[in-house]
Design a protein around this nucleic acid. Structure first.
Lengths: 297, 297
DNA sequence: CCCGCCCATACCGCGAAGGTATGAAGATCG
DNA sequence: CGATCTTCATACCTTCGCGGTATGGGCGGG
């Protein structure tokens, strides 16, 4: 099968004459005759009735011509399709985020903004833990991920801080320290802590422990939860207190109150964007550029 | 644009290696390298990243590969599409019928049967007068037509009788002759007749007049209607009586009763199938064969 | 009945695609 | 750290197929 032959076919069908079609195609009549015959042989079907005064497409011929038109149209659009894809206007982008990222308004905002800016790009979203996201990026199941801590990763990944948000204390409703306008980190020294599982490598968990040590105490860790969102459930159940990024306040968990810190606890939750360093995809580039621009506003 | 190159493209994308792709394609590696480069030049877009250990499709490359797959799939199906079209399993068939044909159960039955037998064929239906149908056939706006009389037509058309059905008298309700189990043609001698317009050439109209003459009278023609269905409206209004094919009884017009003829009035309404003699379309052939087979049952 | 139109066939030349040989660049391993 | 291997790129040659020219054949029109 050859596109040239299909092009010849539709021209002959349009003109109804091999001679005139050849003229329009800028070739001579005999080669065109042979190409049409070759096509008929290849398909095993008679496409034209040879009349003494021209050519008439048979019923099968008409069907094939219509199909050929559709194929040619797509093929002719291919350079344009390619150019649009190269400009990042179409394709696929797989974005991951941690459960804590899912509550960050910035994350949802970036995804929504990208969807409207590049409607030709198909988005795939995934929520998972930081180690899983990093692994997915390395295996190219994801193209970009929002995480809260770098995690352990090879040199193939690029980690860029987007923004930092303050952290707040999460206390059970009616807790002694919940009443005032705020709480100092040192006041939590005698509290049992509930934490999300320490991800592989340095993360929020370590930053909190470090801040506590600077405040003069070593936190008592009671329970651990697999993800930040379930941590709040344990707090609500009264198993202890926790420290979470301010954006987690958006999650209204019955039985949990959030309290800002008085003074500077030396604690901030970063939001990081992770991509593959080698990835030259214009779509990923566009997404990175958009997110970094929005973060510096 | 060349389908061969698209085929090479998707193979390279699938394998991730030019060398292995060349092996699978049964060619050597250098020509394949050149073809891929040529395709990139033609599209003006880099489709693959050259890694020291193989080729990786860029984002644009992935988009182009997917589009190429779609194009190739259609092109590869073309021989099968052509074969199916040649067997008359797909295409288009335009069928016309006269207003009287619209009430013939045989006509609707054939159209329905063909639609289920050849679901790939798109049907176009048209109701019109015999002369218009004949003209449409000659100008190839129609492929087949059901008519009641041959009409005037060139030698290019083939007219085949399918079946003959008896004719019945159509009388206003409460008419003197409507009571008995039947009426003899001669009994209508003193009645005023309502007829549909005489089509160009010999038709039902002439057959009826001839039968009346054989029965010993010349019918008095009062009003004429443009189509057979409107004739019945005039009968209902009491403007006269008419003679119509038996299948017209299916049209329940308020104020009209139908009565069979006693004895043999020498009247029968033929149903004819008209096609183009030169038409070699397998679809039309299939339809003709089906209709003729059904008619001889 | 001859002429003209249009499709089919025969033969030739050229260009593009494939093959062979070889180079260059980077990963792998001792 | 250097030898080797892997893989893509380049150079040159060969071949096949497409298009061109010349010509035949069939059917309709004057």
């Amino acid at each position: 099968m050859d596109l040239r032959r299909l092009r010849y076919l539709v021209t002959v069908a349009d003109e109804g004459h091999i001679t005139r079609a050849a003229e329009r195609l800028g070739i001579q009549q005999p080669p065109l005759t042979r190409q049409i015959r070759a096509l008929e042989d290849e398909l095993g079907v008679v496409l034209f009735q040879r009349l003494p005064r021209g050519m008439r497409a048979t019923e099968a011929g008409r069907v094939v011509v219509e199909e050929a038109r559709r194929i040619l149209e797509r093929a002719d659009r291919l350079p344009d399709t390619a150019a649009r894809a190269a400009r990042g206007e179409q394709g696929r982008l797989a974005i991951g985020y941690t459960s804590s990222g899912a509550f960050q308004p910035f994350v949802a905002q970036q995804i929504r903004a990208f969807r409207t800016a590049s409607p030709g790009v198909q988005l795939a979203l995934a929520e998972d833990g930081t180690p899983e996201l990093v692994a997915a990026l390395e295996e190219e199941r994801l193209d970009a991920a929002f995480v809260r801590s770098g995690g352990a990763h090879g040199a193939g990944l690029r980690v860029e801080p987007l923004l930092e948000e303050p952290m707040v204390a999460a206390l059970p409703t009616g807790h002694r320290l919940a009443a005032a306008g705020g709480v100092a980190l040192a006041e939590l020294a005698d509290q049992t802590f509930v934490f999300y599982r320490r991800p592989t490598g340095p993360g929020l968990h370590d930053a909190i422990v470090a801040a506590c040590l600077r405040a003069g105490f070593s936190p008592m860790v009671g329970q651990e939860a697999p993800r930040m969102s379930s941590t709040l459930g344990l707090v609500a159940a009264g198993l202890g207190v926790s420290i979470v990024p301010a954006s987690m306040q958006r999650m209204n968990v019955e039985g949990v109150v959030f309290t800002p810190f008085k003074g500077d606890p030396g604690l901030a939750a970063p939001l990081l964007l992770v991509t593959r360093r080698r990835d030259r995809s214009p779509i990923v580039e566009a997404f990175r550029a958009q997110a970094k621009a929005a973060a510096t506003d």
